[in-house]
Every structure is written in structure tokens, then in C-alpha cells.
Simulated scan of single mutants.
Amino acid sequence: MTNSLRPNGDRRAPLPPAQSPADGVPSPRSPHSTQKKQNGKQRDAFFDNAKYLAIVLVAMGHAWEPLKGDSRILEAAYQVVYAFHMPAFILISGYFSRSFDMRPDRLKRLITGVAVPYIIFETAYPLFKRVIDNDPHQEISLLDPWYLTWFLVALFIWRLTTPIWNLVRWPLPLALGLAMLATVTPEIGDDLDLQRVLQFLPFFVLGLVMKPEHFHMVRRRSVRIASVPLFAVALAFSWWAVPRMNTAWFYHRDAAQELGAPWWTGPVMVLAMFGCSLVLTACFFAWVPRRQMWFTALGAGTLYGYLLHGFLVKAGDYQGWFEASWLHHPAGEILVTALAAAVVTVLCTKPVQRMFRFAMEPKMDWAFKKDAAELARERQGAERREREPEKVNA
């Protein structure tokens, strides 16, 4: 699963430049880094592996939620996973947003790849609840993200503000300051899930300021070895903290006062959770394979797995699938965990992507004006095609 058995030992292979593959700029090939060309774009196996493994952890965490009940061990594992799975995913999103600007083609991709899927799934989830849960009163609101769609709202806002974070002198301290202020401001309310947008913001900004060498640092053999006892300590501490700590802190969706805590604990928890999440995220990255794996190609479809698996989790919740007593024993919990990993894996595959591309990655060329540069390229191409027959006749 790792590169620790390579003869090169700790020799570090170069990671791709910060530009997102979506920008159409292929990263240079390297004999030490496993890259694959997909849809004419260069991808890096490390990041695709990390995204896939993170989305599997997301699905597992959602499957554990209705099962954990009074299980202290499962609750402890749940807290540890929630401490780093979304921070890791958000950090990668920030890293690949470094080159985002207000260029028309990038704004178009932001609208079609984030805003439109948000509108579709923010409508689909409440409709699904009306049908499956027989709840005709379930409202549809584009201002109040429902279940998983908060991430699309957050990503849209974060990416739009990227030029600002690339401009200011101290982006990460500023982002942490905003997150700390959010935790003492319950008046923010639920509109666009701004509490989560602001409290998770530091992880996105950290991704913006990271460089390839930072990922090299966590790939060292010493870090991989140290990550094992660190995860063990995290699990032990979480087991101790289960009866003493409100799990809602890991969701980053409430102010301190809404959790029944003194206001000053909000800023303290932001810094404490940020530090713990960074340590566990580094441990997670340390064990992410860099080479091509059987699941590497699935990393390109993680948003499909993220948004689609929610329907199955909610269907199980509405229909009482998780209420069977045998599921609340170790064997049942292991089975549900394996099923969650298998289902989200299937939802990341190419056939599923082709089936739901209309909702996740619509082209929508009809909705956008062509920019001047694109029109100029088309004119040049037409003129070139017109001249070619003249050369052939000559």
C-alpha cells in the first residue's frame, strides 16, 4: 500500500505543479511519479488515491452515524475519522485551486461543476425525502444546504475568494481569525451553511499556500512510522473524550453558544481542532500510495460518490435499515462498514459517471457567451481550413 518497500527508500519523487488539471495545463512527466492521462489531462496518482480514500472514509463515517449509539469504541473511531477526512479533502481542493482566477473559462467550470450540481442536488434530496420518507412537507430551499450539499456551497465561495487569499500577506492567520469569529457568532444562522464555510475555510486556505515540497515532507519514512503511534494515541484520547466532549464540534456547523458552551471556547476549539486535524491529515497523507493502484482512476469520480451515496444512507435512515439489532454488534458494524466502502467505490466508477454526468458536469454551452479569445481562435481555425484547399490545388 505504500512506497516504503522501494529500493530508493526516502528518495522523494516530484509532485505535479500547483495548477489544477482542470486548467488544461499538463504537468511534466517524471519517471518516479505515476501519472495517467485522462480525457487529455495529466493526473497524479497520489492525489487521486488520497481523494478516493478520503471519500471512502466519508461514506464509512455516514454509515457509522446511525449505528454508533452507545458504542464507545465506534464513537471514538467516528470522531477520529471526522477529525481529518473532510479537512484532507478540502486541503486538496485548495491546493488545486491555486491557479483559479476570474478567467471566463474557469468561471464557467465553477458554475457548471459546482453551482449547477448544487442546485440539482439541493432540489433532489428534499424531493427524495418526500417520496421515500412520505414527508410532503419537506421544503426545498437553495439557501439552506441539505445534508451533503453544504460542501458545494463552501467550495463555490472558497474558490470565488481565491484571488483575495492569493493577494493578502498572511492568508492563513486571517482565515483562522474568521473561523474563530464565526464560532462566537450564532447570529450567522443557517443560510448557505456559512458556519461550516467559515470554520472549514482555514483548511482550504492552507491548501492554497502549500507547495509540492510540503507533500514530500509527509511522505518520509520517519513520518509514516510516527503516524502509527499518533493514530493510536488519537484513538485512545477519543475513547477517553467520548463521554466528555460533544461530537458536534467535529461538524464545524455551530457556534459555541449553540453547543451550550461558553463563548470563549469557540476560538480555543478552532485552534485545537485545526492542530489535531492537521496532524491526523499529515498521518493520512503519509500512508496514501503514490504509485498507480487499482482504485487510482476512481479518484476522478469522488464528487459522484460523495453526492450519490447520500441517497442510500438517507434511504436506510428513512426505511429503518439500521434498526436491526444484529447490526449494532461488532460483526454487523464491520459488515456495514465494508458495504459503505464498496458502494461508494461503485459510485465513483466510469459507468456511474457517464450516467450522472448530465447533473455533475453539464456542458451548458448554450448558456454562455463565447469570450473574445475563443472567437478569435475559431476565426483563425476557419481561415486556416479555407487556405488548405488552395495549397492543395496549387
Score class of each variant (00 low, 15 high):
P136C: 02
E65L: 14
F274K: 05
K129T: 13
Q35R: 15
M355Y: 12
A338P: 02
Q19M: 10
R109M: 09
F47A: 08
V205H: 04
R387P: 00
L142C: 06
Y95D: 06
R379W: 05
Y118Q: 03
L278Y: 06
A234D: 02
A45G: 13
M60Y: 10
R106Q: 15
L201Y: 11
R220V: 04
V228R: 10
M355S: 15
T149K: 04
K41I: 13
W170V: 07
W158I: 07
L5N: 12
P289H: 04
K41N: 11
F295T: 14
A45C: 15
M102A: 15
K211W: 07
F215L: 06
P267L: 14
H137F: 03
G381H: 08
A394T: 11
I164E: 01
Y306M: 11
F368K: 11
E388R: 03
P28S: 04
L259G: 04
R291C: 08
S277I: 01
H137E: 07
S71G: 06
I119K: 02
P21E: 05
K314H: 10
G189I: 10
W165I: 04
V153N: 00
P28E: 04
V25G: 01
T183S: 13
K68T: 08
V344K: 02
T247D: 05
A248N: 08
L5W: 09
R103Y: 09
W158N: 09
L53F: 05
G320L: 04
V233Y: 00
P351S: 08
F237P: 00
E374H: 12
I157G: 01
R377E: 15
P289Y: 03
S277A: 08
G266L: 10
Y251A: 02
E386W: 03
F96T: 09
P262A: 13
R357S: 11
R291Y: 12
R387S: 01
I92N: 00
A261M: 14
K350V: 13
D193K: 12
T123S: 07
L375H: 09
F89D: 02
I119F: 09
T337R: 04
